[in-house]
Amino acid sequence: MAGRLIANLEGHGPLAPEERAAVEALVGPMKTLPSDTELVTDGEAAPDCHLLMEGQAFRHKTLPDGRRQIVFFHVPGDILDLQLAGMPVDYSVSTLAMCRVAPIARGRLADLIALRPRLGQAFWRLSLLEAAIQREWMFGMGRRTAYARVAHLLCEVYARMQRADLVQNNRCRFPITQNHLADAAGLSGVHTNRVLQALRANGLIELRSRELIVRDWAGLVAAGEFDAAYLQGAAERAAMARPGGGLAARG
């Protein structure tokens, strides 16, 4: 059940068979959630983390007047709320589509990390990856044009879905609506619509039937000023550096 999580952890280096088994043993019974379900609530503490097994979700903050900022799009294999101290989270997580999630007891995870320091380092690096994504989003909000900002978000989601082996024939599931993109990019709905129309007109993407179709990956990368290095662990960067190991070659 924890295959994609283990793959994420092994992006930073191989795990021994007993380490993989220990991660598998952490994962509790899976449950199914409909779309638009708030799974994690800002300000609340919970005894379990949540591993996203299938589907897509998003992390967000919402002001008292209802204005929302999306700060992360989650893909299968992500832990939606990886905090070990038992402190209340300072964000919410909601489902974008039907999702299957499995609990991971925070106490058991903390014990495993104490017992197996190499696994502890791997989970720590997952947190570093989240921080790298947040920095990239912050940079985009402050310095990229609206066109580049949206293109970069599309590149990131596509690259992360591809890493989870969920891209086929240059397309992936994409339940992210125009309003979600607007809330992630800090744009109005009207401005986001114009950007998406421009990306389509330039032959870079199509969005239809809740799918993202990438027509020109190199062009989309250029439009978004996208460099996937911030998404990769050391082991993955070494693999990508080998001939034929690039993202476009795998699409």
Rank of each mutant, 00 (worst) to 15 (best):
residue 87 M to H: 09
residue 125 R to P: 00
residue 56 Q to R: 13
residue 108 R to Q: 15
residue 75 V to F: 08
residue 65 D to L: 04
residue 124 W to D: 05
residue 112 L to D: 06
residue 94 S to D: 14
residue 85 A to C: 04
residue 88 P to Q: 06
residue 59 R to H: 09
residue 57 A to K: 06
residue 70 I to E: 03
residue 83 Q to K: 11
residue 120 G to T: 05
residue 49 C to Y: 03
residue 69 Q to W: 02
residue 52 L to P: 06
residue 95 T to P: 11
residue 88 P to K: 06
residue 132 A to W: 01
residue 92 S to D: 09
residue 64 P to S: 05
residue 110 A to L: 13
residue 111 D to W: 06
residue 128 L to S: 11
residue 79 I to D: 00
residue 123 F to I: 01
residue 101 V to M: 12
residue 102 A to C: 12
residue 63 L to H: 04
residue 65 D to G: 00
residue 80 L to K: 03
residue 88 P to R: 06
residue 125 R to F: 13
residue 83 Q to R: 14
residue 111 D to N: 12
residue 109 L to E: 03
residue 75 V to P: 05
residue 65 D to P: 00
residue 120 G to K: 07
residue 105 A to R: 13
residue 110 A to R: 14
residue 104 I to D: 05
residue 135 R to K: 10
residue 110 A to E: 01
residue 47 P to W: 01
residue 74 H to M: 12
residue 123 F to T: 03
residue 55 G to M: 11
residue 64 P to H: 02
residue 83 Q to C: 08
residue 123 F to V: 04
residue 120 G to N: 07
residue 94 S to V: 07
residue 69 Q to F: 01
residue 109 L to Y: 04
residue 108 R to M: 04
residue 52 L to I: 09
residue 116 R to G: 01
residue 124 W to A: 14
residue 116 R to T: 07
residue 71 V to Y: 02
residue 57 A to C: 11
residue 104 I to K: 08
residue 83 Q to H: 14
residue 119 L to Y: 05
residue 55 G to L: 13
residue 95 T to V: 11
residue 91 Y to G: 03
residue 121 Q to I: 09
residue 70 I to Q: 03
residue 92 S to A: 14
residue 75 V to L: 08
residue 125 R to I: 04
residue 77 G to R: 09
residue 112 L to Y: 06
residue 101 V to N: 11
residue 121 Q to L: 14
residue 86 G to V: 03
residue 119 L to P: 03
residue 56 Q to G: 10
residue 100 R to G: 11
residue 96 L to N: 11
residue 124 W to G: 10
residue 56 Q to F: 15
residue 106 R to Y: 03
residue 53 M to H: 15
residue 112 L to F: 08
residue 116 R to C: 04
residue 61 K to F: 07
residue 106 R to P: 00
residue 112 L to A: 06
residue 78 D to Q: 06
residue 131 A to E: 14
residue 90 D to Q: 12
residue 83 Q to V: 12
residue 79 I to Y: 01
residue 134 Q to A: 15
residue 89 V to G: 01
residue 68 R to S: 12
residue 113 I to S: 05
residue 62 T to H: 01
residue 113 I to H: 01
residue 118 R to Y: 12
residue 113 I to Q: 05
residue 54 E to D: 15
residue 83 Q to G: 05
residue 93 V to D: 07
residue 122 A to K: 10
residue 71 V to H: 00
residue 63 L to I: 00
residue 46 A to G: 09
residue 78 D to E: 10
residue 69 Q to E: 13
residue 53 M to Y: 12
residue 82 L to S: 04
residue 96 L to P: 05
residue 91 Y to C: 05
residue 103 P to R: 04
residue 124 W to F: 15
residue 120 G to A: 08
residue 135 R to H: 08
residue 73 F to K: 02
residue 120 G to W: 05
residue 89 V to S: 00
residue 128 L to A: 13
residue 59 R to C: 15
residue 55 G to H: 10
residue 87 M to R: 12
residue 123 F to M: 04
residue 59 R to D: 08
residue 114 A to W: 00
residue 115 L to N: 10
residue 95 T to G: 10
residue 126 L to V: 00
residue 121 Q to R: 15
residue 57 A to Y: 07
residue 89 V to W: 04
residue 82 L to K: 02
residue 124 W to R: 13
residue 83 Q to P: 02
residue 76 P to W: 14
residue 53 M to C: 13
residue 119 L to W: 03
residue 84 L to H: 02
residue 77 G to T: 09
residue 48 D to Q: 08
residue 99 C to R: 07
residue 99 C to E: 11
residue 93 V to H: 04
residue 109 L to D: 02
residue 82 L to E: 03
residue 65 D to C: 00
residue 72 F to P: 00
residue 50 H to T: 13
residue 67 R to A: 07
residue 118 R to D: 15
residue 100 R to V: 12
